[in-house]
């Protein structure tokens, strides 16, 4: 039987042994639960005793978006210190003189951090049961949203690990990881809207001479909205594109999102492992 990676086992043991983990889990559920119950209270206040299914759908959307925002805060925060923290605690050099390869180290660090985030997301399932209780949402949509979360957690986690490998200090690594996650979550969306508006202005002759080819701009807009978590989540929830571009990659938006995020994550992990090789490190021993 294949043995579990020792770093992964150690990380899981350390993480789940402390009271901090239970507190973080409780806080996460408290925040998300407060949003759900607050939303229900506001919905019912206007019409006591009645809850319409379309409100259940709105509740589901609100819950999913809240969860995405919270993941944007939690995942980079959990992963941005996994390597730099070892460096600061002066345990990394010892780890690197074992038979473990840098690749094994970065992957086990990612998996252990992501395992905790998956636990957080799984712990919110009872809140989703409230949505099911009132109907209006198909189980497939819930599965789709959870699949989407897994892909998002993976890339955000890889960004955190990469920053942690690249920067010496956890503080700098964390700020950079949050910046990159924000750029991905919000920056790509804003850029897509901006370029779409520019394309429309060009089409109306509002910009002269024409700066970029309209077909190219439409392609870029489509790509940007396909890699933007908010747009893709809305696509899964509402079943339609946020910005109509007329471009078809031959795959649904969520599939493009999954492929790009998985590929980017694997490349980042490869880069992180390379950064730990002797001669590639940006930090010196003596």
């Amino acid at each position: 039987m294949a043995e579990i990676n020792p770093v992964l086992l150690k990380e899981l043991r350390q993480r789940f042994r402390t009271g901090k983990t239970a507190w973080l889990l409780a806080l996460y559920l408290l925040v998300i639960g407060a949003f759900v119950l607050g939303f229900m209270y506001l919905s019912w206040r206007g019409s006591p005793g009645i809850f319409q299914p379309d409100r259940s759908r709105s509740l589901f959307i609100m819950l999913s978006v809240t969860q995405l925002v919270l993941l944007g805060f939690v995942v980079p925060g959990l992963t941005a210190g996994v390597i730099s923290g070892e460096r600061e605690r002066q345990t990394l050099n010892v780890l690197l003189t074992t038979r473990l390869t840098p690749r094994q180290i970065v992957w086990s660090k990612l998996v252990s951090s992501c395992a905790f985030v998956v636990l957080l997301v799984t712990a919110t399932l009872p809140l989703y049961s409230i949505v099911f209780m009132y109907g209006g949402i198909a189980p497939g949509q819930v599965l789709g949203v959870f699949g989407f979360y897994l892909v998002t957690i993976f890339l955000f986690g890889c960004i955190g690990v990469a920053c942690s490998s690249f920067f010496k200090r956890t503080g700098v690594s964390t700020v950079t990881a949050y910046g990159l996650a924000f750029a991905l979550a919000a920056g790509t969306g804003f850029l897509a809207v901006f370029l779409h508006e520019m394309n429309r202005l060009q089409a109306r002759g509002g910009i002269s001479p024409e700066t970029w080819h309209p077909a190219f701009l439409a392609w870029v807009v489509e790509f940007l909205q396909d890699i933007n978590p908010v747009f893709v989540l809305m696509q899964i929830l509402l079943g339609e594109n946020g910005i109509p571009t007329g471009v078809n990659f031959g795959l649904p938006g969520w599939a493009v999102y999954t492929l790009v995020y998985l590929a980017a994550g694997v490349l980042l992990q490869h880069w992180s492992a390379r950064l730990l090789l002797p001669g590639k490190r940006r930090w010196r021993n003596p």
Binding site: Q14, R17, R89, Q90, T91, N93, V94
Partner: peptide
């Protein structure tokens, strides 16, 4: 077997 001049240990183990 390598023992560096400064080293840390893991919490919670």
């Amino acid at each position: 077997g390598y023992m560096p001049d400064f080293f840390g240990v893991y919490d919670g183990l």
